[in-house]
């Protein structure tokens, strides 16, 4: 298995490098001038030229790309044009906020989504199932930023129970996590439902029932583990979706995470910030996908067997 992990980690490197080049190229073509934003309208042409040379913006595309990739290989993300701070250091301090948000959202969506899905599957096409199906669909139709605003309106402005923005303790994460994960709870619930329905109809579940196992044991020991595999795939994908979703949520709740940092970066034409942020997110995403693949092995003995036989070779 470690060999497999190593191989996957190595495969990640070229993808990250190409992601870096792609985002560098995109940012190169973004209209607007960071110097203009940095110095304002009153800057003299001399000042502008001087600043341009200092930031290396006067070099041609190829030279800048080369410098960028070389720096990247030394884990140097450069310095922010606007504040002059080291982007790598900024990202490390901000990354935990984004990661906590995304991980908790995935956890919340699994913890609530799977039971709801099972509940529905066991009562397929009856009234509670239909009601839940509609509710989950309604939840996945809500824009997360709007839900965030509504939650702020209710819990922060009207009731005053929870803070509406910033960070500082678990209280500050409650609303963002709810806002970001409701759609995902709904998605996981629907996926669990359909995948459970498929498993419940299969022969081994009938066998388990016919040998007199309690319904609870049939569902939890026999049906659920088999139904989990597609859910894990979806959950891994949802993590990526969450990382994107946090960008919007962070901006609503002004949480100092990577998403918010990148948005200000884009608006200020602060290219190193955007490039560094995207690389961090792509890296987190790739690691999460790897973890997803490894979790399969624990859930599905068939895949575990593949790893073991691969090891022997």
């Amino acid at each position: 298995m470690w060999k497999y992990v190593g191989k996957r980690l190595l495969q990640m490197i070229p993808i990250l490098v190409v992601v870096a080049i792609l985002i560098f190229t995109l940012m190169y073509f973004v209209p607007g001038d960071p110097i203009q934003i940095l110095l304002g309208d009153s800057a003299t042409p001399v000042q502008i030229e001087e600043a341009r040379a200092r930031l290396g913006l006067d070099e041609p595309y190829v030279v800048r790309l080369k410098d960028f990739v070389v720096d990247l290989c030394h884990f140097d993300f450069g310095e922010s044009y606007m504040t002059g701070t080291n982007v790598g250091r900024e990202l490390i301090t901000r990354f935990p906020n984004t990661l906590i948000l995304a991980l908790f959202c995935v956890a919340v969506s699994l913890v609530f989504g799977i039971p709801i899905g099972i509940h529905c599957a066991l009562r397929a096409d009856k009234l509670p199932d239909r009601v839940w199906l509609f509710v989950t669909m309604l939840c996945s139709s809500m824009p997360n930023f709007w839900l965030a605003l509504m939650l702020v309106l209710l819990f922060s402005l009207r009731l005053g129970w929870l803070p509406s923005n910033g960070i500082g303790g678990w209280k500050y994460f409650v609303l963002p996590i709810i806002a970001n994960s409701i759609g995902s709870v709904a998605g996981i619930a629907r996926q669990t439902r359909s995948s459970m329905l498929e498993t419940i109809r299969s022969d081994f579940v009938t066998t388990a029932r016919s040998k007199g196992l309690s319904e609870k044991a049939v569902i939890l020991k026999h049906a659920l583990p088999n139904a989990l595999i597609p859910i894990i795939t979806i959950a891994g994908g949802h993590f990526g979706f969450m990382l994107g979703g946090t960008t919007v949520i962070e901006s609503v709740f002004s949480i100092p995470g990577i998403g918010n940092y990148m948005l200000t970066g884009i608006n200020n034409r602060d290219y190193p910030v955007v490039q560094g942020g995207i690389i961090y997110i792509a890296f987190a995403f790739a690691i999460m996908m790897l973890i997803t693949d490894l979790v399969y092995a624990f859930v599905d003995p068939r895949i575990k067997a593949q790893y073991i036989s691969g090891k022997k070779k």
């Binding site: 993808i15 990250l16 190409v18 992601v19 792609l22 985002i23 995109l26 940012m27 073509f29 973004v30 209209p31 990526g240 979706f241 990382l243 994107g244 979703g245 960008t247 919007v248 990148m262 948005l263 884009i266 955007v274 995207i278 997110i281 792509a282 995403f285 790739a286």
Partner: peptide, 17 residues
């Protein structure tokens, strides 16, 4: 590479361009 980061970030980057 396209799928290495969330779609909305790619959309943001492209619409910034």
């Amino acid at each position: 590479v396209f799928q290495a980061f969330p779609g909305i970030l790619l959309a943001i980057a492209i619409s910034a361009v």
